[in-house]
Nucleic acid binder design. Structure first.
Length: 212
DNA sequence: TGTCGGATAAAT
DNA sequence: TTTATCCGACAA
């Protein structure tokens, strides 16, 4: 698996991104995210996501269809990268919801698969677990920056590929949005049940068993 | 636990 | 011009 998997990894087609945001947030789990830079390739399985459904979600930057230079890409077609800065950190989302409907899925944690040596070069960490177990950590480890804003994830040098199918998915409240009114309790955080690379442990509100 | 960093956008 | 944010490093 590893290098050969990556070498052969092909971007998923556009149609993959054209599913409802909550479905996409779940089906992204276990998929491979791949980034190519001058250093080489890094890749990891997505193990944690959060859905943001702009028009009715107070926690989303695009709440109430708020349209600014920052959120502009969320109004475009599904499958683009929405990167933004949170203090000093870059975070990456997958745009969803279709053109004119500003929704997105935040990538919150990865299980490193390839290019771990490059990740350690970019980030100080004691173990591979610490390398990509948070939304700001994984972008730094993979070299994802604001230059990736608006990049279609169906094409190199930043794309999503087939990975592995999780057996169980947990859902719970999203992280870090405590001042977003009723939206703070929406169960729109998803993670692979039991995975070591998830950013923060939390009691699951619901567990989904997936077919083989 | 708490502080601070320093882009973007809302609130004042 | 001030405050808040989908976070993380470090101090204590």
């Amino acid at each position: 698996m590893k290098e050969e998997t990556i070498f052969n990894a092909k971007p998923l087609p556009q149609i993959f991104f054209e599913q409802p945001t909550l479905e996409l947030a779940k089906t992204l789990l276990g998929k491979l995210i791949v980034k190519e830079t001058d250093d080489g390739i890094t890749a990891g399985y997505i193990v944690e996501t959060e859905a943001y459904i702009g028009p009715m979600d107070k926690a989303a930057h695009s709440y109430n269809n708020r349209r600014t230079p920052r959120t502009e890409v969320m109004f475009k077609e599904s499958g683009m990268a929405y990167t933004y800065l949170m203090h000093t950190h870059c975070l990456v989302n997958v745009v969803s919801g279709g053109q004119g409907n500003p929704e997105a899925v935040l990538i919150r944690a990865l299980e490193p698969v390839a290019g771990v040596e490059f990740m350690f070069q970019r980030r100080k960490a004691d173990s591979p677990i610490q390398l990509t177990n948070g939304p700001g950590k994984l972008t730094k480890a993979m070299g994802i920056t604001m230059k990736d804003y608006g990049h279609p994830l169906t094409e190199p040098s930043l794309f999503i590929a087939e990975g592995c199918q999780p057996k169980r998915i947990s859902s719970g409240k999203r992280i870090g949005i405590d001042s977003s009114g009723e939206a703070k309790d929406y169960p729109w955080r998803f993670w692979i049940t039991g995975n070591q690379f998830v950013s923060r442990h939390q009691k699951a509100l619901k567990i989904f068993e997936l077919p083989e």
